[in-house]
Nucleic acid binder design. Sequence first.
RNA 1: GUCCCCAUCGUCUAGUGGCCUAGGACGCCGGCCUCUCACGCCGGUAACAGGGGUUCAAAUCCCCUUGGGGACGCCA
Length: 463
Amino acid sequence: MTVVTRFAPSPTGYLHIGGARTALFSYLWARKNQGKFILRIEDTDQERSTPEMTQAILKAMEWLGLEYEELYFQSKRQEIHQEYIDKLVAEGKAYWCECSPEEVEQMRQEAMAKGLKPKYNGRCREKNLGPGPGRVVRLKAPLEGETSFVDLVKGKISVQNQELDDLILRRSDGTPTYNLAVVVDDLTMGITHVIRGDDHVNNTHRQILIYKALNAPIPQFAHVPMILGPDKKKLSKRHGALSVMVYKEMGFLPEALLNYLARLGWSYKDQEIFSKAELIEKFSLENLSKSPSVFDTEKLLWLNSHYIKESSRQRLAQLLLEFLQPEGFNPSLAYLEKIVPLYQPRAKTLKEMAEQMHFFLKEAKELDYDAKAVEKFLTPEVIPHLQKIREKIATLTNFEQKALENIFAAYLEENQLKFKVIAQPLRVALTGQTVSPGLFETMEVLGKEEVLNRLQRALELAT
RNA sequence: GUCCCCAUCGUCUAGUGGCCUAGGACGCCGGCCUCUCACGCCGGUAACAGGGGUUCAAAUCCCCUUGGGGACGCCA
């Protein structure tokens, strides 16, 4: 049987870190088994679902590169859901209930008071009611025995049927409830493996009851533990960025996020770095961890810097444009491609990279000079040296790193100087700041004319 | 409150009864490299929650305690 997995987000919010991870696991499992990966938008909550969020989720899936074979919208499948509800009622596996939400709430209170789990007490079970205003359809769940399943990551999970109640299948407004819709959809889409968050384990037993009432085959379940914040609480907005697309805006590469997410709750021996192909090859459900994991931005940052080093300068240059343009810079790709390699070993994010390279993108006359740096390094002692060096450089015809190094070596030799003495002053003169990539590579990228202009400007500044 | 699940360094994890005086990675600390900042390289710090069993042998199996997470909707 071919493997079919699905990711079923509800468009009541953006695609968040946790969702992205279960989507990834579902995707990997399908790919590994040459199966099918389905994206199903569970937009049945008319109140809170929006088309904008649906688009946002689709975009995020695309950015992450999680391609799916089929796309469904749950809201368009209500007739199918209804068919199954009718079938259950016809077979006596479900019944109409006239209890109002207030009455049910009271039943819950009573159960709580008795130290029991809050649940519906089954009052309309045997009333044999038909449809009517305000009425819902409930599943006639077994009163005794236990329901269990073997979770692919947690092992056997059982629950006494007394703990479960007659869950609602069809709301009084005629729409199907989540549990019914999920079961019918998973069933009709031929899902073989339901990979989802830990928070669904309790629903699983209820869903299995529906499968059984329907006499349908039950898929395999794999419940992935939650992702926690640094305080070990379920990851939420107060822990910072949650949305996948915000990570994009923060300058993360999709492969870094994917790699990080994969290793969060899953492992393959001691390996840390995985390409997508490797992930597909090595992924397995049994190596998923059973316990929740804490989201660690530091490690994500490390992976991101790793992938920045691995990426081609062309790709990074292209991506950088998105960060540079809002800042008012519009460099040519060719020029950017020359700058990028100088930052690949240094930057942890694209955003950081873009910010640090500003001085490359301005002309000498509009360059910002850090006042403190100027005061500290452009001293009367070094000015003459910079002046002479500028003259030497001006004679250079091939303005390359090697040639520049030679000029400097010669000058330092003649004057019995250490490079250290003029390095920082030179840096400040060229970049306006005290931190930058190596000076020779920086000069080569800036080009002769710009270097001469900047030295000129610095010399004027210092006097 | 009731039910379900979980428990190895600060964090992500390896470990599937002897190979464990517990390995890797991030972070942190120190050193090397060095024109600044990084990168890189080398080294270090640091964990089997506690208590009972089972066994010749337990991080690994069982029980209890503690701690943590999740779920109890006409939300998904």
